[in-house]
Write a protein that binds this DNA or RNA. Structure first.
Lengths: 205, 205, 205, 205
DNA sequence: TATGAATGAGTTTTCATTCAT
DNA sequence: TATGAATGAAAACTCATTCAT
């Protein structure tokens, strides 16, 4: 592999047509990633499926990894955004209600494009790590603020640790539901139990 | 996800010599996986590092995936075995003590070969899925039995769901400590908090 | 006989440049086949001799067999075409003259690229079978029409069988002259005797 | 490929067990050749199918080609032997009868192990050439003697040429029946027409 | 003699990336 | 800018053959 270039997109698409091209490329990437996985994903295939020449692909993405990275950033960025918005909205509700609504929204959010979500997690652990780390941090940040605001109501004293726990536990339970336990439990039940897990951790029932 | 060539090992080594060969190959695989990751791992490199010819490698493993799969099975198999043994031993202790010891042992166990553990999780999500599924199931099974035995003491009613939650949450928190939160928290603290998480979920304090 | 990867060409070259590439590849294939045979023929050698990269070769041919197959189709296609043209032209001559001219032309035709002709037959019997079958069928068709047109002059009643006999006999005698009896007999003599064989079979002298 | 060794069998099997081993190896070779062709044939597969270790195979055959060569020699040797015997027996019959019986016997002979016969011809043209040449020469020799004995009855003057023609034509028609025209014509009809072809060539009806 | 593990040169094949048009 | 042919380094994989046991 020749000179490792930056993994960031090369240039922002300014024209409408460019935007469409980029979108088509990312869609193709997502589709192959979901349907076939990371290994069979290659730039020629992506370009072909996107209906674009390889040359064009390289106009916007310096290399293969940038493709997946951009996709991950887009997907997780949207999710983070939704979460942050939501956290804001729930600020003033009682903890119990806020939690319930939050969990519900989280599960909804994950179902959106769940195949991609899952693929990004399982197929590209290595590439995604910086992205995942960021995702985790931002999520922790949002949770941390919420915990701080209610620090007198809750049991955990080390709020950073608690945020780390909550994000890790909730996120991974949802993810594993997707990957390992599809159809074993129903959504409503999961939601209730997940809320219970959180509430008991924070309040001891 | 495709399934071209079987990813299973080719033939079992029967003589002493060939068992050594296979062991050397797996060790080399682990080392490269840990130090460099899945993508740069390739059969030639593995064979070279193992001090074996490529031909020998292909005598036992049809391709790169089979290599990693065999490694995953070995590593997780050992871990599952440790966990199951431990669960047996803790059967008769009070829940609180059993839990504390279990969590501690789990963290110890994960530290053994933690680099490999981490690499297997982050680098080969796709390959490992069947293995991970099995790992999860066996872990759930062990936990489920423990929960059943103490069903009258605990809050959760759907024990299968509870087992799924506990395994997912504990496992992923430990894993994320390894991958995303190295050095952010200290072990003793993590251990205590993890125990608290579990105890509150089961008993509500 | 297995059928792993399709043995058909991969994609048709569209630009001038790529047509030249394909032509160069086929020429190199022919040359190696003739000079060294099928076994030593390999994609790297072909690409090198063609002055092309292996990658380019694989852009148009999925494997070694496809290479030889394409060559066989080209060579035999041309030959079939010549034969069919000729048969048309001889339609109106008396049988004896038509036969003489036909045999002569056939021998001429075979001498064109006789090394390749021979190589394709002896080296790639297995691959060529569908091609050979087609060659035989088309030749029989041409002969059959000629026989039908003159059905009242000739002895054989089952014209299809006769066509099969004539094509097989004449073709294989010419081929064996090339492969097994080079220099044992002279061309003029062969030509006369071959005509005699055919005439006696059709007319009984 | 390392040092080209002689292609002849290494040593004659003297013991009973050795003979069985050799026989098993040749049978396995034949089977793979017939069922899969020359390319997929390899020494390891042959040894395995023969129930013998590769090492043992190399005890009796210096290399892969020797395997096929020995097989070809065995098969064609038997056939040549049958033909020569037969020619002797038919010496004193009238030409017409001798011819008829000869053709019939030839077709019978070819049907014995016809799959192998066909495979040896189509799969190993290159390897077999010396063997085929010898086959052709011995057949021509037998035919030539018969023609000489009856030189006053027949039309062709150059008896060597005639022998070459007859052997080539008859042999190839029979072979093509096997490979290209299976089931198109029935045996009895073929036999009659083949006799006719020969008789007309020799006698002009 | 037999075994079958080991070898490694030789091939096949892929695919990220470049570049002439 | 777009195209897609071409590149070739790097993998993947095979298999005739050897050799320690």
């Amino acid at each position: 592999m020749p000179g490792k270039a930056s993994k960031l997109p090369r240039k922002a698409p300014q024209q409408r047509r460019s935007q469409q091209t980029v979108a088509a490329i990312l869609e193709a990437t997502a589709r192959i990633l979901v349907e076939q996985g990371y290994e069979p994903l290659n730039t020629n295939r992506v370009a072909e499926l996107a209906g674009v020449s390889v040359g064009s692909l390289y106009q916007y993405f310096p290399n293969k990894q940038a493709l997946v990275l951009a996709l991950a950033e887009k997907h997780f960025g949207e999710q983070i955004h939704r979460i942050a918005m939501l956290a804001k909205e729930l600020e003033k509700l009682p903890l119990r209600d806020a939690n319930k609504l939050f969990i519900r929204a989280l599960m909804e959010s994950t179902k959106i494009n769940s195949a991609l979500h899952r693929a990004l997690f399982t197929e590209v652990g290595h590439l995604g790590e910086p992205v995942l780390r960021q995702l985790q941090e931002q999520a922790e940040q949002a949770v941390l603020e919420a915990l701080r605001r209610r620090r007198h109501e809750i049991l955990p004293k080390d709020l950073e640790l608690a945020a780390f726990f909550l994000v890790s536990a909730v996120d991974s339970i949802i993810l594993r539901t997707l990957t390992l336990a599809q159809d074993r439990f129903d959504m409503a039940q999961l939601e209730t139990e997940l809320s219970a897990l959180v509430m008991r951790y924070l309040l001891g029932e």
